[in-house]
């Protein structure tokens, strides 16, 4: 009965994984085809792989510069968002006031306007502050874009932390900062880690602001892809190669964070 269950879970798990992964696998395959093979019907599965598409991509733009910008912007904005949100969520969970509920709601309201709706005001603001086409500017926009979800997630996770432990620390004379540093952060670590991971990925994927607020200096990978694909929309093999290069770093991050999630699991077991 138990072995049967494991078998069923395994089959289901792998089936879902295959289904989810198929389009990406297909894209990866296409990246190594010639343009002619890419559009042939029926689709070719076996072919002599070529690297010409990657060479063409590297020729067109400074891939490393775009990647560096993406890394700086996603991790920078995650750090900023967590730095603002961890203290705020701590306060809302452990020292709530009658206004806490409306603060949470008000934060949500900033996610109700479509980005294009505030494009003109943000553009003007950034122009006046000299933040256009800067990494700092994108870090601020992305951190803000994700702040509501970060605060809400942390709020939910912090609520699962036993109050008694923090209260015990308080009785022992811990200041509020010490309470957060020594007790809350380790206790809520799995939650904070998945929130951080979420923020990194959201920032990595963002295309609207990066396209509208950067031109060359601070442009991240999404802008690279967009710039690459619009004039050459029909060159699927090259577009696939460029896309593969753009998502490669996040695949690595995803792999490591997956291990982080497993560590979160053991934490739950210890608790």
């Amino acid at each position: 009965m138990r072995a049967n269950n494991t078998l069923r879970t395994t089959v289901l798990g792998w089936a879902v994984a295959l289904l989810m992964f198929f389009p990406i696998g297909w894209m990866a395959l296409t990246a190594f085809k010639t343009e002619l093979q890419a559009v042939s019907t029926p689709p070719v599965l076996f072919f002599k792989p070529t690297l010409e598409n990657f060479a063409a991509v590297f020729e067109r733009g400074d891939y490393l510069k775009f990647t560096l910008n993406s890394v700086l912007v996603s991790f920078g904005s995650t750090f900023l968002a967590l730095a603002l949100a961890v203290p705020a969520a701590y306060r809302m969970v452990f020292h709530p006031t009658p206004r806490t509920g409306s603060t949470l709601l008000w934060m949500l309201s900033t996610k109700m306007m479509p980005p294009v709706g505030v494009l003109v005001p943000i553009y003007l603001l950034f122009r006046d502050a000299g933040l256009l086409d800067t990494v700092t500017g994108l870090v601020i926009v992305y951190a803000l874009m994700n702040l509501p979800i970060v605060v809400w997630m942390l709020y939910t996770y912090f609520k699962d932390v036993p109050r008694e432990i923090l209260e015990a620390g308080r009785v022992d004379g811990a200041s509020a900062w010490q309470e957060v540093q020594i007790l809350l952060l380790p206790l809520a670590w799995p939650g904070i880690a998945s929130t951080g991971l979420l923020n990194v990925i959201l920032a990595w994927n963002e295309a609207f602001w990066s396209l509208n607020l950067t031109t060359s200096k601070a442009a991240p990978l999404t802008a690279f892809i967009a710039a690459f694909s619009s004039p050459e929309g029909l060159f699927w093999a090259k577009l696939s190669a460029a896309s593969l290069l753009a998502i490669a770093p996040i695949l690595v991050v995803g792999w490591f964070s997956q291990k982080q999630l497993v560590r979160g699991l053991t934490f739950g077991a210890v608790k």
Binding site: I201, N205, E206, I247, I250
Partner: peptide, 8 residues
Amino acid sequence: IPWAIPTI
């Protein structure tokens, strides 16, 4: 992975 890929 699907979610970790830019929509664009």
